[in-house]
Design a binder for these strands. Structure first.
Length: 428
DNA sequence: AAGCATGATTAAGG
DNA sequence: CCTTAATCATGCTT
């Protein structure tokens, strides 16, 4: 429409030069009395049709008008109608229904599942959650990566929607345009509503194939984003120091049974701002690595044991005020434990042997026991290596490597080499 | 760059 | 589904 002037301008001269006087000839309507004349007339018309593309628009318009006014027109129209009647059946038979495209359905489903084509705002976060669930295990991850992912997804979503809208609009425009054309043409040639319908169908199909491309590329983009997101998850980042501290604290204060319950995991996860599955991972790794090389973790164990022991004792002595993570005087308390480590060890043993199976109170006691034992082992390590090794070996880990069904600590194993060979690496 | 530390993943077992 | 044990892949330190 916009380029009408351009078209007119460019082809004006050609049209006029190419067919001088044709219109005038038409309008004159030469004598229809004899067959010769009629034949020639039709020949002219055909010629005109064949060369119609060479004409400029206004010229064509004029011609069209002339044609409409031509006295032969109704007859010609009728003939065309007859021909049409005969052919329309075959046309209709050729193009009927189309099976719902499986590919398109897949794409639609995926886009819906990704939240790209779903409802407005909730879609993005839902997709992120879905991705998280697919990636990890469950639970909502609360991190920057997520928001990043979500932002990118919504960006994709936005592009998708604007493009889709554009296509839809273009499709509608084109359809109405074609329909107008057809309607106009229906004055000159027979066009049934069915035909228009069919045309519209064709247009829609064409556009929907374009839309499918859009959907496909959107899907691809989402997949890429997602895989990158998953890679980013796989690409580990160390937990921050505080989180590690909390986890270690729990681990070493539950050393005889370092299997946090679901609730405990949740709480740890919350405290460390990581997911529950990350907590599980951490404990899994920690257990296995600790068990594999207890000696290596000795120092760490002592540290955390002393720390929690200090807080624990401060709790038990001072009653309520407890949770200052910065333990006041870990060294001092360790020193004081050093004095009567033997007694404590005895009591620890008896406690450990009797009371920790199952009950919550037992577990509580047990954690204290663990803590104390660590402190003892630490002090023992400093004073006498043999005691330390004896104390250390029965950490609930039996010879088989089991943690739960550890035998009573009194059955101290330890041919010199056990995990208890502390003296060598405490200096490290 | 090498080597260790560490979070995540996977296979196997219960 | 949870655990262990092995392994991967990366981060950090040396």
């Amino acid at each position: 429409m916009d380029d009408q002037p351009r078209l007119m301008h460019s082809s004006h001269g050609v049209g006029m030069a190419g067919h001088p006087g044709l219109a005038q000839h038409m309008q004159d309507g030469t004598g229809g009395a004899d067959g010769e004349g009629r034949k020639q007339d039709i020949g002219d018309i055909l010629q005109q049709i064949m060369t119609i593309t060479d004409q400029s628009l206004d010229e064509a318009q004029a011609r069209k008008h002339a044609l409409n006014c031509h006295r032969m027109k109704p007859a010609l129209f009728n003939v065309l109608c007859e021909i049409k009647e005969k052919t329309v059946l075959s046309i209709r038979g050729a193009q009927e229904e189309e099976p719902p495209d499986a590919q398109l359905m897949r794409l639609d489903n995926m886009l819906l599942a990704e939240g790209v084509s779903g409802p407005e705002k909730g879609g993005g976060s839902a997709a992120a959650a879905a991705a998280a669930a697919a990636a990890g295990g469950g639970g909502s991850d609360n991190s920057a990566e997520h928001s990043d992912y979500r932002a990118k997804l919504s960006q994709i979503r936005q592009i998708y929607h604007t493009e889709l809208e554009k296509y839809e609009q273009a499709c509608n425009e084109f359809t109405t345009h074609v329909m107008n054309l057809l309607r106009e043409q229906s004055r000159t040639r027979p066009i049934s509503p069915k035909e228009i319908e069919r045309m519209v169908g064709i247009i829609h199909r064409k556009f929907s194939s374009i839309q499918m491309q859009l959907k496909q590329s959107t899907c691809e983009a989402v997949m890429i984003l997602r895989s990158r997101f998953l890679d980013a998850r796989r690409k580990r980042r160390n937990f921050n120091k505080q989180a590690t501290e909390i986890l270690n604290e729990y681990f070493y204060s539950h050393l005889s049974n370092p299997y946090p319950s679901e609730e405990a995991k949740e709480e740890l996860a919350k405290k460390c701002s990581i997911t529950v599955s990350q907590v599980s991972n951490w404990f899994g790794n920690k257990r296995i690595r600790y068990k594999k090389n207890i000696g290596k973790f000795q120092e760490e164990a002592n540290m955390y044991a002393a720390k929690t022991a200090a807080t624990a004792t401060s709790v038990s002595t001072h009653g309520s005020q407890a949770n200052s993570p910065s333990t006041p005087n870990s060294a001092g308390s360790a020193g004081s434990f050093n004095m009567n480590s033997g007694d404590l060890f005895m009591s620890v043993q008896s406690l450990n042997g009797d009371s920790y199976q199952g009950a919550q109170v037992g577990a509580n006691v047990q954690s204290q026991v663990d803590t104390l034992r660590h402190v003892i082992s630490q002090t023992g390590g400093y004073s006498e290596s043999l005691a330390a090794s004896q104390i250390y070996s029965p950490q609930g880990i039996n010879a088989n490597g089991g943690w739960q069904d550890a035998p009573t600590p009194s059955s101290v194993t330890s041919p010199t080499e056990g995990p208890g060979s502390v003296h060598s690496d405490t200096s490290n």
